[in-house]
Design a binder for these strands. Structure first.
Length: 578
RNA sequence: GCGCCCAUAGCUCAGUUGGAUAGAGCGUUGGCCUCCGGAGCCAAAGGUCAGAGGUUCGAGUCCUCUUGGGCGCGCCA
């Protein structure tokens, strides 16, 4: 549609240049057409005349008039007008509009799909919360956004892989094991001093109980808390060392794996509840186990991108665009988290991902450059790695702003939010903000305002349409309620507004995919719902006059399709009744 | 100190790769159901788009600076 209009305009400009009405170089002017924002401005508008006026040394209005006059007839176009200060406004023909209702209804569930992505593989990595605690409302943003983006990309013609990467090794996991172990001892009646900076959440106690119930045994603490270092983090490390000594490597691993397993299982259940699914859960520990980690380091080393300094092994990231070099292996022989991350992203490349999008919290923004640098160093520079940074979700508690912390046990579980307001409202709530916008979260407020959630406005429009269609079907004896429609009778402003919005759906989907901004779909749907509700109040659909009735029912059926498809992209249900 | 993000109505936020008179929800005020679902519709009030320069026919949007806020800068993850 847009393309053919651009062509019409270009032809007109060329004709004027050939005729000498415009300077010859005007042919090269970029002709852009955009949706008109106001009804008086028609359906599409073009601003070339404003740009050409300088070259032509006449007023923009005169140029616009010339262009409007020399546009050739087209079945698409009803009329073309020049408008101050120099826009060319295009009004589509009723025929073109009527046909588009049929186009939408024929496409049905496929309306809005495109091959914009050309079938290219793209991996969306999101959530990726470590198994140290349940998902909280901060993770919910990543889950809602990542899942919606993945759905949008699928609709835009990409082959999408969804992946969850979790760090199931390293110090965090030891702290988790320690936390559980101490709670187990506590259950056994021992007197413990639970460290301030271990995992304090109540779920740790539950895991400890389950561990005991499952026959897990642990040795007692004894002098466990004597002579500990004063500094908090050192204290944890010492407790971990004592625990490992007491339980032995196997005993420690048993409790660690049990805890991580329980938490991961819980996370998966929460994600399923939140209607988020992954093609793959990728374990960091598996990279070491499979030898991929060693292999990656060797590969970089052989290529001459690693060097030793102060006993540590460094990657010369600064040669590949990062601001400084980064440690890959510490002086104590342990790898940093960066090393497996390199191996992981090389594995993505190995699996054929030309494009990778990592959805990360804004606090990880320095991180993506170094991984990119590593990809270039490994000769995979042509594989594109992008990050979508979601700004922080702050927790508001009694008017005070806290940052959510799994360690301190300060968070609201995602599950709690969904139980309070429902999955639809929760997902829509997250998707109502663009990624770069920070977000404060107050459960009490969310609960109080849940009935104001615009999701109901959109769902209500869908349910209303279904209800009208059902009634019309019943009244009309069932079949054929759309038969004999005369679309030329749709002459209300409310009708052209609604239809105009419906026609914008496909480009809204590709824009959301291109800009990685699923929130655009949410705002678009609110607009469509608004046009529908206005229409609903403006006239009756189940009309006496059959050709008009059928046309109106077809139009709202098209609206039903768009709303259902759009909500589907957001992972929100489109109920027929509410 | 360096880097990234943000600043739009009383509050929470949109604003289509620069377009015409800057929009919506909530809140406030006043209207609309004998009729397809009132979780709806209509209207009013509410703005120096943080500030100052610049680019452009045209700037909330792009560039520079200033102010104010968030985050990051570890051989933590």
């Amino acid at each position: 549609m847009k393309e053919s209009l651009v062509q019409l305009l270009q032809q007109a400009v060329r004709r004027l240049c050939d005729a000498g009405d415009l300077p010859a170089e005007a042919v090269q002017a970029a002709v852009k057409v955009e949706r008109a924002r106001k009804r008086e401005h028609g359906d599409f508008a073009c601003g070339v005349a404003l740009a050409l006026a300088g070259q032509a040394r006449t007023s923009p209005m005169a140029v616009a008039q010339k262009i409007a006059d020399s546009i050739s007839d087209s079945p698409l176009v009803d009329k073309v007008q020049a408008a101050a200060p120099g826009f060319v406004n295009i009004f589509l023909s009723r025929d073109a509009l009527a046909q588009s209702i049929q186009t939408i209804r024929r496409a049905g569930e496929d309306y809005g799909r495109s091959d914009f992505g050309g079938g290219e593989t793209i991996m969306v990595e999101f959530v990726s919360a470590n198994p140290t605690g349940p998902l909280h409302v901060g993770h919910g943003r990543g889950a809602a956004c990542g899942d919606a983006l993945a759905r949008v990309l699928v609709a835009a013609g990409f082959a999408v892989l969804r992946e969850y990467y979790f760090n199931d090794s390293g110090r965090q996991m030891d702290i988790l094991a320690l936390s559980v172990w101490l709670r187990v001892l506590e259950n056994g009646g021992e007197k413990i001093v639970f460290p301030e900076n271990a995992y304090r959440g109540g779920y740790i106690k539950t895991i400890a109980q389950n561990f005991c119930a499952g026959g897990g045994e642990v040795c007692g603490g004894g002098a466990l808390f004597e002579n500990l270092p004063a500094e908090d983090e050192k204290k944890l490390d010492e407790l971990i060392a004592r625990g490992k000594k007491k339980l032995g490597a196997d005993g420690w691993a048993k409790i660690l794996n049990f805890a991580a397993g329980e938490i991961m299982e819980n996370i998966r259940a929460d994600l399923a509840m939140f209607r988020v699914s992954f093609d793959n859960y990728f374990s960091e520990a598996s990279l070491a186990a499979s030898g991929a980690l060693e292999k990656t380091v060797a590969q970089l080393k052989n290529a001459g991108h690693l060097y030793e300094k102060d006993g540590a092994l460094w990657f010369c990231a600064s040669k590949f665009g990062d601001t400084e070099d980064r440690v890959v292996r510490r002086a104590n022989g342990a790898y940093t988290y960066f090393a497996p991350d390199i191996a992981y992203h090389l594995d993505k490349v190995r699996r054929g991902c030309k494009n990778m999008i990592n959805i990360l919290g804004a606090d990880h923004h320095g991180y993506i450059e170094r991984v990119r640098a590593a990809l270039s160093a490994a000769g995979c520079g042509e594989h594109r790695l992008d990050a979508l940074f979601l700004q922080q979700v702050n927790l508001i508690n009694g008017g005070k702003k806290l940052q959510m912390s799994t360690r301190r046990g300060e968070f609201v579980p995602l599950r709690t939010l969904c139980e309070e307001v429902g999955v639809d409202a929760a997902r829509f709530f997250y998707l109502l903000r663009k990624p770069a916008q920070k977000m404060n979260f107050d459960l009490a407020l969310a609960r109080a305002q849940s009935s104001d959630n615009p999701v109901y406005y959109v769902q209500y429009a869908h349910a209303r349409i279904c209800s009208v269609l059902a009634k019309a079907g019943a009244a009309g004896g069932g079949a054929g309620i759309f038969a004999g429609a005369d679309y030329a009778l749709l002459q209300l402003d409310a009708e052209s507004d609604l239809l105009g919005a419906l026609l914008r759906y496909p480009e809204t989907v590709t824009a959301a995919a291109r800009q990685r901004e699923p929130h655009q779909i949410a705002y678009y749907l609110r607009e469509v719902a608004n046009y529908f509700h206005v229409y609903y109040n403006r006239c009756r659909f189940i009309e006496e006059q059959a050709p008009l009735r059928a046309a109106r029912l077809a139009l709202i059926d098209a609206a039903r399709i768009v709303i259902a498809n759009g909500l589907g992209l957001l992972g929100v249900s489109a109920p027929e009744k509410m």
